[in-house]
């Protein structure tokens, strides 16, 4: 698909399997094209989802809405399961509709040691340092086992 920008970037030349420069079919203009990615799954952590996979994102959505539509299917982890009435109250606040979703996992704290507005607003620095240490030591699976106790 054609995109704006990218001129003057060495990235375009180094990844021909991802970037190609083409002549516009409508004029003599040259256009940078990128390969469209079709993810097998979009993995999203949200604040609210119902049992069918209708999901609301509170605060910044980043690119989650786009990714949900680009992917073949969505897997949701959610701070809490809510009633479908919550979606019906204001349908346009539903960021991901159920038919795009394959799985809903109720997982409070699912973005830790990171942040999930408005549930937890700062990084858990102790756990983050433990993660950085685990990466160096090659012990992330052990770190994971500790973080996941009772949650699998």
């Amino acid at each position: 698909m054609p995109v704006g920008g990218m001129w003057g970037s060495d990235l375009v030349d180094i990844r021909p399997e991802f970037f190609q420069v083409m002549k516009s079919p409508f004029s003599e203009e040259k256009v940078v094209c990128v390969k469209a990615l079709v993810p097998d799954y979009a993995i999203l952590h949200v604040q609210e989802a119902d049992i069918y996979g209708n999901a609301r994102i509170l605060g910044p959505s980043y690119q989650d809405v786009l990714m949900a539509r680009a992917a073949k299917k969505v897997i949701l982890t959610t701070e809490r399961i809510v009633g479908t009435y919550r979606m019906q109250e204001e349908p346009k606040l539903t960021a991901v509709p159920h038919m795009l979703v394959e799985a809903v996992v109720e997982l409070p704290g699912g973005a830790k040691p990171g942040i999930c507005y408005p549930e937890y607003l700062t990084v858990d620095w102790d756990d983050h340092k433990a993660y950085q240490k685990a990466v160096k030591a090659g012990e992330v699976p052990q770190f994971a086992a500790k973080m996941l106790e009772g949650r699998l």
Binding site: A42, V46, D64, M67, G114, Y117
Partner: peptide
């Protein structure tokens, strides 16, 4: 495709 951004609303436990 991984949701959220940097340390924000990332599906970390998944």
């Amino acid at each position: 495709a991984i949701g959220g951004n940097a340390m924000h609303r990332n599906p970390t436990l998944f």
